[in-house]
């Protein structure tokens, strides 16, 4: 299962990448903007994208989740702003609030990915 990480804090992104690898998932790379994420997804389609709401090109995460949904790529929102941004209409398959435990992310991925 290839998972792309869209997160502009490189320390957080790297730790998620290592956590994924340690848990048997494959990283499809780290991207820091909505534009780069969509380009990467078009070039090398992942099975899932983890999306932070606030990215290097601004608060573009919510729109990115919609773009990904339109391409048929599922996403999980991983953000510290989940309680202050209205995500009720978002097509994200799950929402994980930062900071999070390793096990919480892995459990969400296991539930969300097709068997």
């Amino acid at each position: 299962m290839k998972i792309m990480i869209c997160e502009d804090n490189i320390v957080i992104a790297m730790s998620i990448e290592m956590l994924l690898e340690d848990s048997g998932f494959e990283s499809a790379g780290i991207v820091t903007t909505r534009t780069a994420c969509l380009q990467e997804c078009d070039a090398n389609r992942p099975d899932m994208v983890l999306v932070d709401l606030d990215l290097a090109d601004g608060p573009t995460g919510v729109a990115l989740v919609r773009d990904l949904h339109a391409r048929g790529i599922p996403s999980i929102i991983v953000s510290g702003q989940t309680s202050v941004i209205d995500l009720s209409g978002s097509p994200a398959v799950a929402v994980l609030e930062k900071p999070f435990h390793d096990a919480a992310l892995i459990a969400l991925l296991e539930q969300s990915l097709p068997a």
């Binding site: 804090n9 957080i12 900071p99």
Partner: peptide, 9 residues
């Protein structure tokens, strides 16, 4: 929250 997540990372 971001800072705590960074330290955790």
């Amino acid at each position: 929250k971001n800072l705590i997540t960074t330290v955790q990372s």
